[in-house]
């Protein structure tokens, strides 16, 4: 079994109308053995950017700290908050620095970016473990349940959903996908990022 499946876990992000959502399960495992049902793998980067890090748990911790450092350095040097697009490239280049001995993480990025006219634009992206970026207009998925997430999301997602509809869609997608995945589940957390607030909800899920 691949190192990518060692700890299990899955993340999904979706675009809505002037909002984005990112959701993840809460399982930490050691192969088939469940270790924790409260393992955080989605982290706030700024007020408007969230980062999901499915993959090898030890690298989740390492990369979270690495990105905290690099975003802080960016903020100090630039004297402004990082935008989601720039952050996606920061993630990509950080991973590519380790092209031949990578971190076993496939990051998912969700955020709202500022437009020149002062509006906001939803942004999602995902990369592979060496930093190849996928800018998607609809949804991105990663982790051990990625195939299932693709299937359900492709069936449920539709354009221009309001925040509450987006929450329902991403929650249903995640729960039904992880229920068919032995390495994901054991609870879930959803963040919906809107113009003026971030709604974070924990979901009850099957615990088997």
């Amino acid at each position: 079994m691949s190192i990518m499946q060692y700890n299990g876990g899955s993340v999904i992000a979706m675009v809505g109308k002037d909002c984005v959502a990112i959701a993840s399960d809460l399982r930490l495992g050691s192969q088939a053995l469940g270790i924790s049902s409260n393992f955080q793998r989605v982290f706030p980067i700024t007020d408007r950017i969230y980062l999901g890090l499915p993959g090898l748990a030890t690298d989740v911790t390492t990369l979270r700290e690495r990105f905290r450092l690099r975003v802080n350095m960016y903020t100090i040097k630039e004297e402004r908050e990082i935008e989601p697009e720039a952050f996606a490239h920061l993630v990509s280049s950080t991973l590519y620095e380790h092209r031949f001995g990578p971190y076993f993480i496939e990051p998912v990025i969700a955020g709202l970016s500022k437009t020149p006219t002062g509006g906001i634009k939803p942004f999602i992206a995902a990369t592979d473990l060496i930093g190849c970026i996928n800018f998607a207009k609809d949804f991105v998925v990663a982790g051990t349940a990625s195939a299932k997430l693709f299937g359900v999301a492709e069936g449920l997602w539709e354009p221009d959903m309001e925040a509450e509809d987006l929450f329902e869609t991403i929650s249903q997608t995640l729960l039904n996908a992880v229920d068919r995945d032995a390495f994901s589940g054991w609870g879930a957390v959803v963040h919906v990022i809107t113009k003026d607030k971030v709604i974070t909800r924990k979901l009850k899920a099957r615990m088997d």
């Binding site: 195939a147 249903q172 229920d179």
Partner: peptide, 15 residues
Amino acid sequence: SLVQPFLDNQIYFKN
């Protein structure tokens, strides 16, 4: 693996 969880949701009304 793509279709079955979708059916769980839409046929069995899982979750």
